[in-house]
Amino acid sequence: MRGVGIGLRRPLAEAVLETDRRIDWLEIVPENFLGKAGPFSRALARAAERFPIGAHGVSMSLGGPDAFDPDLFRALRGLLDRLGIERYTEHLSFSNVGGFHSHDLLALPFHEDAVRWAAARIREAAERLGRPLDVENPSTYVAMPGSEMGEGEFVSAVVEEADCGLLLDVNNVFVSAFNHGTDPVALLEAMPLERTTRIHVAGHLDLGDLCVDDHGHPIRAEVFDLLARALRRTGEVPVLLEWDTNIPPLDRVLDEADRVREVVERALAERSSRRAMAPRMEASPC
């Protein structure tokens, strides 16, 4: 899987199957297909014949206290096997607590106990899935009660302890930094970039005093800048444009994906030229 993908979302599915425009890969939210056999599932089957497919879950509640749902894992593993998906991705957050399904991605408190717990759950989930599981850095609105470390330090510690990959969401980096009044570049640099296996980029809702990670707006220049910075560090990884609310017609989504692709290609070219320059500079007598 390479290049710039988009999310296979219900309102876009038919158009995705009909378009001649460039789409490098598609990412699905597997929960949309588990136990369902309707038109969207048929669209996925057709899409899988044409595009590489990645999967990004939303309901595992990786950091949460509730026992994993064995039915979910069984169904998920079956779907991933059928689609030939080798890695899974989920959010470093929790959704369910004591049987309450928030249907949201809630941040954990950033402290050592949460690091150990989340890392153990990631390892367990990966074993249950029978494939590597990479986690996405959260978008946060507040440091949860009891937090003792910064977000970048927390994500790094979890990923290190779990020995897993990072799905780096550069929009989440911006949203978190904005909401905490900190520097997004510093937060990006604090992430375990060397473990990045995929990048997400998206737009967000700017309420003035709060940025909400709604995946429903065009990408801001600052987020594009973070994307380029990240890619210059990570090298080539698959990049996904997420557009999940206020979804416009496919052509508008693909226009935005083309903008993402330009940034990706420019950043990777800069990375290549810097690396090519590096040995010569070292060898230079000056």
Partner: peptide, 14 residues
């Protein structure tokens, strides 16, 4: 390395 349950502090948070 794998706790079977969240620590008391994390349980209290949840």
């Amino acid at each position: 390395r794998a706790p079977r349950a969240p620590s008391p502090r994390l349980s209290a948070f949840f």
